[in-house]
Design a binder for these strands. Structure first.
Lengths: 207, 207
DNA sequence: AGATAATATTTCCTATTGGCTAATTTGTTG
DNA sequence: CAACAAATTAGCCAATAGGAAATATTATCT
């Protein structure tokens, strides 16, 4: 199929939630080229160091192909760059001097089967913390069969109601409004409301 | 079930190049599955959020294929995770499975000239966040002459009262109970209570 | 309990794209 | 312009991404 017009960068938005943001703010090829050139490497030399073919490198740098994850690893390995560095925005993670105000009740809703989250910030990818307010519906311990468990650390403050924090290695801890907890999120954890009313907690997760 | 497929090629992640690279210490699929499940998402939901097919997600999670970089981007975008986080080795600064409970009003007092802080955790050196509750006494803008300014990011939630957040580059923002703010702490900032009563805020600082 | 329905996940097949070798074009110097 | 080096493109094969059927898992009824 011979085209004479330059390839249109297709930006396909899938159906369903219209929440999808564009998927190419990050010019990987351009940055890789900069890195290679800053190392004074030719495509051939980079090829030898990474184990990828010259042509492949060329196409990646010109953004004609999207490298496989293993290819990215080989690149990072061969050129002595760590992957996180590749994807960090040019400067600080969060743009300097930025702020996000969230008025009461106007966070982004994010319901799950067991909790009702309200995200209190946006552009989470660039931030170190994820703050949200969560409504914990009254329920019993039996309602969950598996711990919540993920990277990072969590801080939570009870705003309203009474609940218990179940954790993997300890006895359940009853908590009332004003109590707070700081814990390692790799430890299994789950919240259970103890009263008939829902409980309300502030939750901050740090990576 | 027709298991006996003739010439079914074995699916291997390492392509046939067979070069030196021992690149696959990082269980990407496993981590992605954990992330998806921690969000209580089904493959179908994740598919809608990311624009990737169910089957593709499944194969990625089972490490049967090496996702294209655009696929990784769609994943990160749709699931609200940032890419560096994906590739960082799971390090644990905080002792695994530890927790600190702070009952209401029993935090460590830490008064300053302008605020009255109550630290809500201990062993701060090992943690990623510093949470504290602060009472902001009624005062005027003139009471402070210099901005507070430090490394990291801050999240604050107004628990009681009315106050204004003064920041270096913006107009003062009036806030009432329930409002929250996320901002870069390098930007000069200061809180002023607007009512006769003291205001109470929750404050979390991330390094 | 079992049977059945509903949903979640995996498998199979096809179309598309990444990746390698080899050839072509482009750029630089003598 | 020749001669060389570097980068890009063409052709081919293998791997990935998508779609739908098959399987596994969970929920709902009698």
């Amino acid at each position: 199929m011979s085209k004479e017009q330059p390839d249109m960068p297709e930006l396909k938005i899938e159906s369903g939630s219209g929440l999808q943001t564009n998927v190419e703010p990050l010019q990987l090829g351009k940055r890789l080229r900069e890195i290679r050139q800053s190392l004074s490497l030719t495509l051939e030399e980079a090829s030898q160091k990474t184990g990828l073919a010259r042509s492949t490198l060329s196409k990646i740098e010109n953004e004609q192909i999207s490298p496989t994850f293993t290819a990215v690893q080989k690149l990072a390995n061969g050129l002595q760059i760590d992957i996180p560095q590749l994807f960090e925005k040019p400067r600080k993670a969060m743009a300097s001097g930025r702020r996000v105000l969230t008025k009461a009740g106007e966070g982004t809703p994010h319901p799950t089967s067991t909790y009702e989250h309200e995200l209190l910030s946006t552009e989470l990818a660039r931030k170190k913390m994820v703050p949200f307010k969560t409504r914990v519906r009254a329920r019993s311990f039996d309602d969950f069969c598996d711990w919540v468990r993920h990277e990072g650390e969590e801080f939570l403050l009870v705003l309203e109601g009474e609940l218990a924090l179940y954790t993997e290695f300890y006895e359940p801890v009853p908590m009332v409004a004003g109590d707070s907890m700081y814990y390692d999120a790799n430890m299994g954890h789950a919240l259970v409301s103890l009263s008939e009313k829902d409980a309300l907690v502030l939750w901050v997760v740090a990576r």
